[in-house]
Design a binder for these strands. Structure first.
Lengths: 231, 231
DNA sequence: CGCCCAATTGAACTGCATCAAGATTCGTGG
DNA sequence: CCACGAATCTTGATGCAGTTCAATTGGGCG
């Protein structure tokens, strides 16, 4: 499938959980020279919706969700970030979305906007690094639009699982353990929790996934375009 | 509403249609030094899905749609680009989406990937310009995810119209004329053409929009969060 | 061991897709 | 300038995927 396809990154190594980053795995030294590390508890906020800040971040360990709360109380998850990925990009001075840790002890690196932009001006490799982070963010968002816009609920859940298990695969053995809950998946795909559950059951019956526990999952089969696309 | 809100750009002036770009309105001279101009007919391709190319572009006049054709034949429009906006950002060597002109005589500026990146290395202001284009692309995509994920069909159409009329407003008098068809709107929002039409009718009856013709529209009212969000 | 939140399953309802048929607009050529 | 044809747009009727409401089970952690 095209959607939720992993970018062919030249750097597949992901630092192990709860370990300080090894030089070169996530960001080059120059980038890190202006950064500082933060360690977050589960559901702790990195920044809040409508807050005034414009710093950028990357994930070292754990997972981050960017989300918006609508007036009706509905939550939409815009993006889920895994180790090695950048987030928080904005051109405004205030936040349109909030961001919080999904997993316990999620570790992130923070880059103050002014300083990182100044650094980019003097060091082209930093500018390229930032661009690469932006482009990957764009690809994740595009992939999500594709999935949310065109697929049936079964297809959405399968595409989501395939994409995230792929991104998680390098750091884990067989069977990835999802950092996100069914509620997160629902709010990401714009469907209800119940529909997500039914999709899990259905996908398991069709032999496309295997569950070793609610959060422990293996994606075995390739998506069937006929069955998964809308009608 | 938060979604589909226009970025507070420092440069609101949009070049008039069918006129060669005036210095400084769209991209600074340094950026343009490696660019070339293309003029496209309606529905003419800028690049095709799965094609091997990675150049970047900006719209001078008219409108561009980025889209994907799914295996089942369904078309998903990822983004619609108006004058002053950048598109075609990819970190891969091949295209995940196609791009084509929406309006007749759409004019774009093309930036060869290698040369523009080289230029960015030597000129920080070019790098900043590119980042700004990326960040705006990210904001458009985020806005769309928000709309497609959480809203009822009526809300989707209203948010779409409010956003695009706002973006078009600066170059037109009162009542913007949409470059896109009902089919485009449907494929962008992931709903059927018929539902788009019914939404137009409903919005008109509620006094939220006024139609001077099928494509000539004025958005009069602010969206009612209670009526427009899902249930 | 017991509490609480996450996950699952069932039943009824509804918004939207689909199918079908007109109405309108626009481009093109006479 | 008008006439024709082909898109584009609009409205109606029916069916179904997914939501909502409700209840039960399961797992993790104190």
């Amino acid at each position: 499938m095209l959607q939720f396809q992993r970018p062919t990154s030249s750097d597949e190594t992901t630092p192990p959980l709860r370990t300080l980053p090894v030089t070169g795995t996530v960001a080059p030294d120059t980038l890190r020279s202006v950064a500082h590390i933060r360690c977050l508890k589960r559901n702790q906020e990195v920044f809040c919706q409508d807050e005034c800040s414009d710093d950028w971040y990357s994930v070292i360990a754990g997972a981050i969700r960017e989300y918006a709360i609508q007036r009706d109380g509905r939550r939409q998850i815009i993006d889920v970030l895994l180790p090695g990925e950048f987030f928080g990009f904005t051109s405004r001075s205030h936040r349109r979305f909030g961001a919080q840790a999904v997993a316990e002890d999620t570790t992130i690196e923070c880059y103050p906007r002014q300083r990182i932009e100044g650094l980019a001006d003097s060091d082209p490799s930093v500018a390229r690094e930032i661009r690469a982070g932006c482009l990957q963010a764009i690809e994740r968002l595009e992939a999500q639009i594709l999935v949310v816009g065109t697929m049936t609920s079964l297809g959405k859940v399968h595409a989501f699982l395939a994409y995230y298990c792929d991104r998680l695969a390098s750091s884990q053995g067989d069977g990835a353990s999802l950092p996100v809950s069914r509620y997160d998946i629902a709010d990401m795909l714009g469907i209800s929790v119940e529909t997500v559950c039914r999709a899990f059951t259905e996908l398991q019956q069709r032999g496309l996934i295997t569950l070793q526990g609610p959060r422990r999952i293996t994606v075995t089969g390739k998506p069937d375009p006929v069955l998964l696309s809308r009608n």
